[in-house]
Amino acid sequence: MTENSKTSGALRLADWGLIRAQGEEAAKFLHGQLTQDVVLQTPNQGRLAGYCSAKGRLLALMLAYKRNSDELVLALPSELLPATLKRLSMFVLRAKCKLSDASNELALWGLAGEAARAALGDQAPAEVWAVTHIANKLVMRLPDALVEGQSLSRYALLQAADEAAPALPALTAETWQWLEVQAGLAWVRGATVEQFVPQMLNLELLGGVNFQKGCYPGQEIVARSQYRGTIKRRTFLFKAEGPAQVGQELFHSADAEQPAGLVAAVGTDQGQVLLLAEVKLAALEDGSLHLGSATGPQLQQRPLPYEIAEPQ
């Protein structure tokens, strides 16, 4: 699938939900919970942020918009919203911050391709994670998808739920997911909660971890993985010779007993299957990787749109 009318347009991300954090200490509270610095975040900056358990495992991955100094909006897959909102609320305590589910008031749209770029014009955010304000709407630049060697622009539009749809061609959910996978960004889903430390999903390479900020749940483990060279698993892009699903295990041809990785995201186009999977680095040195079992459909590695450094 190359850039054409099929990959250029807009889609309401109906499987995403939105958490609103309001109050004079909203940013300070979230700063102590997420992998990103939201205190220094400005309304013209977005954030890709992880929410970890005390063991450094990702409970959720989200986009953070700062509407003003006293209000942030967190966008994440709706299947994780209730548990994430409940857990965050447990730690608010006396902080001047009110958390609520804003999914009925706000809507998130995915925009992609030349049509989106043209519609946004000079107001299109130039840098990844930058945000522009268009009237009462916020547009965040997402990582580009690398489609057949060409970069395709993507954006996340936050607007009121009752606002008219963007005046763009309609994208299908299948197409949007296909582009997501080719951007190299895998969101935590219900089947992968607490399966990954941030670096396993390449989160720090995508701008999702700030190693200079203060503490947050799991921070010591995340930092130790980074600075002690203990990252032994990474997420890579593969073509699959058969259907795949998030949470499915991968096996190496030389080891039928122990899983070598886990599927984190899947995209399908006209029968072609691409997936992002977290795998042991050692499993890429020789042999082959397979879905479901050591004799399952074979995987063929494809290039990511960013570099993964060789382990030290």
Rank of each mutant, 00 (worst) to 15 (best):
S78P: 00
Q123E: 15
G50D: 04
P82F: 01
L76A: 10
G184K: 03
L72F: 05
L40V: 09
V92H: 05
N68K: 09
N202S: 08
G296F: 12
A54D: 13
L168N: 12
A165I: 03
L142R: 11
L99N: 06
Q22N: 06
T35V: 10
V73D: 03
Q300G: 10
A240Y: 13
L142P: 00
M200A: 15
L108E: 06
A167D: 10
F91I: 07
A49Q: 07
T175F: 03
G267D: 03
D269W: 07
D144T: 04
K66W: 07
L146W: 08
F236Q: 12
P198S: 12
A116T: 06
N136S: 13
G247Q: 06
T84P: 03
G149Q: 12
A294K: 10
L138M: 13
Y227E: 09
P198V: 07
F251G: 00
E249F: 12
D70G: 04
Q300C: 02
A49D: 03
W109F: 12
V38S: 05
V197I: 15
P297W: 12
Y155W: 08
D269E: 14
G261Y: 02
T192A: 13
E220G: 15
K28M: 07
R228T: 08
F236C: 04
A265Y: 00
G23M: 11
V39F: 10
T35F: 01
L85V: 07
L142A: 09
L262K: 02
L58H: 06
L146E: 14
A164G: 12
A277T: 02
Q45E: 14
L158Y: 00
S153Y: 09
T42V: 09
A145Q: 01
G292A: 11
Q312E: 14
L284Y: 00
L13H: 05
L106F: 07
A26Q: 07
N210S: 11
L203G: 04
R12P: 06
A14L: 10
Q36W: 01
A126N: 10
A145T: 02
L281H: 08
N104C: 09
Q272P: 01
L80C: 10
R94N: 14
A26N: 07
T192C: 05
L274C: 07
L138A: 14
